[in-house]
């Protein structure tokens, strides 16, 4: 335990409900530098409850950076100022005594605020339902290594599959575009043999749903890659673009 504590001025977004107007509320806290930012809000919530006030609503689950549930915009950056970590892995030692810290929800038309810091990310689920899977007929379990896959290809797929669907790419993008997420989910199958049968149908369907939900279009600022807790590469977006053109230009009648 550190023997010193940090005094911080928090400005946290409070919004009673999806349609209600929100605003920033100031909280003065004293926190251990070893606490994570979520633990700091936990402590703050305890004291709010003791005072009979409503606690701040936010999402978290695993608290070890794997699940993608947490996601706050801290001083304008999704998951805070440290690259390649989720919000739960951000510790207060990254801040200085006396700092003012703005904590906001993700802001995007396709991610409406439900309450305080919680947003509705079910848009990502809808993109997944549209094509983020490989259809497998029932039957015997296939042999694990029946189809040879080069190491490099497997690595590309796994790198894309590392996406935890937290939505930081949408939050960081100046256009609130979901292309990094969608492209990661397209690419993880597009490069593997198992993904080939549905490859071009998949990309059309997923992009169509992504557009329908009101996410913006990519303008290649690469802010998504910089803020992604898993470092998903914008090369996936290039892959998705290429597959999209090929699917649209092909003579097949198959349409999304």
């Amino acid at each position: 335990m550190a023997d010193t504590t940090l005094k911080l001025k928090l400005k946290i977004w409070r919004q009673p409900g999806p349609k209600a107007a929100g605003s920033f509320v100031d909280y003065d806290v004293e926190v251990s530098p070893d606490a994570s930012i979520l633990e700091m809000i936990d402590e703050l919530n305890n004291s709010l409850e003791q005072e009979g006030k409503e606690p701040i609503v936010f999402e978290s689950d695993c608290r070890e950076g794997i699940c993608g549930t947490c996601g706050l915009v801290i001083n304008g950056q999704p998951h805070g100022p440290v690259p390649k970590i989720a919000t739960c892995q951000l510790h207060m030692r990254q801040f200085n005594d006396g700092d003012t810290v703005y904590i906001e929800p993700y802001r995007a038309k396709a991610f409406p605020v439900m309450k305080d810091l919680t947003v509705d990310r079910s848009g990502f689920d809808k993109i997944m339902y549209a094509g983020g899977f490989v259809s497998v007929n029932t039957g015997g379990v296939p042999d694990a290594n029946a189809i040879p896959i080069p190491k490099e290809v497997a690595a590309r797929s796994m790198d894309a599959a590392e996406c935890i669907g937290c939505g930081a790419c949408v939050a960081a993008c100046k256009n609130a575009s979901a292309m990094l997420f969608t492209s990661a989910k397209v690419t993880q199958f597009a490069v593997l043999p198992q993904g080939q049968p549905e490859r071009y149908e998949r990309v059309q369907k997923m992009v169509a749903v992504m557009d329908e939900l009101g996410f913006g279009a990519c303008t290649n600022t690469y802010a998504c890659e910089a803020e992604c807790p898993k470092g998903i590469s914008v090369k996936n977006i290039a892959q998705m673009n290429r597959d999209f053109f090929v699917s649209k230009l092909s003579g097949s009648k198959q349409e999304a």
């Binding site: 001083n75 802001r107 995007a108 038309k109 396709a110 609130a176 575009s177 009101g214 913006g216």
Partner: peptide, 13 residues
Amino acid sequence: NRQARPERYAVNA
């Protein structure tokens, strides 16, 4: 793209 984010962030980073 502007319409995709109707409410802006308080801090622009």
